[in-house]
Simulated scan of single mutants.
Amino acid sequence: MNESTFHIHQLHYKNILSIDDLSIPSGMITCIIGESGSGKTTLLKMLNHMISPESGDIEIEGRSVFEWNPVELRREVVMMAQTPVMFGGTVKDNLLIGLRFSEKPAVTDARLKKVLKDVHLDKALDEESDALSGGEKQRVSLARILLLDPPVLLLDEPSSALDEETTQFIMKKLAEFVKNNKKTLVMITHSTAVVRAFADHIIEINKGQVVRESEHIEQQ
C-alpha cells in the first residue's frame, strides 16, 4: 500500500465510532461504504477535525490532528457535505467564494466555465443559485472544491442527487483529476457501481467499526 495520508490510532467517539487501527493511502481513491447510521460521515468529519475524537488520534501526513491549525488543515483537506452549501448570488459568486475564503486569487471566467463543464453542468455564470435543482447545487459545490485544488478531498455522497449517467461522467473526471495531480480522494458512497469502477481502496464500516478493508470490491 502507498504512503498514508491518514493513520488512525485507537480512535473512539461516543458510541458512534471505535477504530483501533486504520490507514488511508495517499494518491488513491478510497471509498467508505456501509449502512446508513454506521458512522461514515462522523469519520469523514474527523479527517479534517470538524469533530474531535474523545480518545485516540488521527495522524495526517505524519502529524497529529491536534497539532494542525484547523484553518490550515481545512485548506489542505477540503470536505464537501452531502447537502451542498450554497450562498446567495449567482453561480459565479458561489464558485469564487471558496477561493476568497481560502485567500486564493480569483480565476478567469474561462476557468470557471471549464470547471462547470468538468462537473457536467451547463449553466450560465450569471444564473442565480437559488434557481438550481438539488443535483445542480451538488455539482456547483463540487466545482468549487475542484477550483481550490486541495491535496485531499473528502466527499460525502457526492452523487446522491445525480442520475447514473451524470455520476459516471463526473466520477471519471474526478478520477482523472486525482490520478493526474497525485491527489487523495476519500468519499462516502452507497453506489456499488461507483465503487466497482473507481475505488482503489475500500473501507466498510458497520456499527462504528471497520469490518472490511480491500484493494478492490469483490464481484457479486
Rank of each mutant, 00 (worst) to 15 (best):
G27C: 03
T30E: 02
K114E: 15
E204I: 06
K173R: 15
Q219H: 12
I8A: 05
V77D: 03
A81L: 11
E157G: 08
C31M: 08
L47G: 06
T83C: 03
S38G: 02
V194G: 08
E213A: 02
V71Q: 13
I60G: 01
I97R: 09
R196E: 15
I170R: 09
V211R: 08
R139P: 07
A193G: 11
A131C: 11
K92W: 06
H120S: 13
P158T: 08
E59H: 08
H12W: 01
P151T: 10
R74C: 00
I217N: 05
K123E: 13
D20E: 15
F87V: 10
K123Q: 11
R196M: 03
F6I: 01
L17R: 06
Q209G: 07
A193P: 01
I51Y: 04
L132A: 05
L155Q: 10
L162C: 06
K182N: 15
A197T: 13
G56Y: 11
K104Y: 00
M171F: 15
E35F: 03
K92L: 06
K137F: 08
D21P: 01
T167G: 05
I203L: 06
L22G: 07
K173F: 09
G62H: 06
V195T: 11
S64G: 10
K182R: 12
N2Y: 00
V77I: 08
K40G: 08
D163M: 04
S160D: 02
I97T: 09
N206Y: 13
H7E: 14
V119N: 11
N15S: 14
L17P: 08
N2C: 02
E164C: 02
G56L: 03
K117G: 14
S18G: 06
H49M: 12
G27V: 04
S159E: 12
D21N: 15
Q220N: 14
N181C: 00
L44G: 09
L99K: 13
T184V: 14
L125H: 07
E164A: 14
K173M: 11
K114Y: 13
L99C: 10
P25L: 02
Q10G: 02
E136Y: 08
I51M: 10
M50T: 04
M79H: 04
D156R: 11
